[in-house]
Simulated assay, not measured.
Amino acid sequence: MAKITNEEVKKVAHLARLELNEDEINNHAEQLEKILGYIKQLEEIDTEYVPCTTRAIEVINVFRKDEKKSSDCIEELLELGPSREDKYFKVPKIINE
């Protein structure tokens, strides 16, 4: 694997609109080399028989059937709003005629 140069880090930093000093450039170059080395290790793993997945732990959604239910707390809910008219919330007009 080719060594990540300081010039490459400077170019990427410029494209990302980052201002890096020389210490930061050297540090990022070293870190990027370690990351790419780790990726190279991962590429060597045989994954031919590993099933594709989007999560490490399988997640199963539990759905419930939508059912219409009557509620006896309509008055209590309407009282929570700032203003009401009959059995509706009253809101300020936002569209000019």
Rank of each mutant, 00 (worst) to 15 (best):
R84L: 12
Y49C: 13
E85L: 13
D86R: 15
L20W: 09
Q31G: 11
L77A: 14
V50W: 10
I60D: 10
I60Y: 11
E22R: 06
K65E: 12
K93A: 06
N6I: 04
R64N: 07
E79D: 13
N21T: 04
R17L: 05
N6G: 04
E48I: 05
V9Q: 00
D86P: 00
Y49M: 08
K34R: 14
T5L: 04
I25M: 05
R17M: 03
E19W: 01
T54S: 06
H14Y: 06
K11Q: 09
D72F: 09
E33R: 03
E33Y: 02
P51A: 00
S83D: 15
I60N: 11
E7M: 09
E43S: 03
V91P: 02
L32I: 15
E19K: 05
D23E: 15
H14P: 01
S70C: 03
P51E: 01
Q31K: 13
K11M: 01
K68I: 12
D72E: 14
H28N: 12
V50Y: 07
L18P: 04
L78R: 00
I95E: 11
E97S: 08
P92C: 03
R55I: 04
P82K: 11
L42T: 02
L20Y: 03
A16L: 14
N27R: 14
K10P: 03
P51W: 00
V12Y: 05
E75H: 08
I95Q: 07
Q41M: 08
L36F: 15
T54I: 01
K34V: 00
V50L: 04
C73R: 14
I35P: 07
L15A: 12
P92A: 03
E43Y: 06
T47I: 09
E24Y: 02
L32G: 05
G37H: 03
S83C: 05
L32T: 14
C52T: 09
E8D: 15
K10D: 09
E43V: 01
K11Y: 02
E97V: 04
E30Y: 04
D46R: 10
K3M: 10
V50Q: 05
T53A: 08
N96L: 10
I57G: 07
E7R: 15
K69T: 14
I60C: 05
Q31C: 11
G81S: 13
R55T: 10
K93P: 00
A13R: 12
I94P: 02
L15M: 13
E79A: 08
A56D: 12
P82W: 10
P51H: 04
T54K: 04
R64G: 07
N21Q: 09
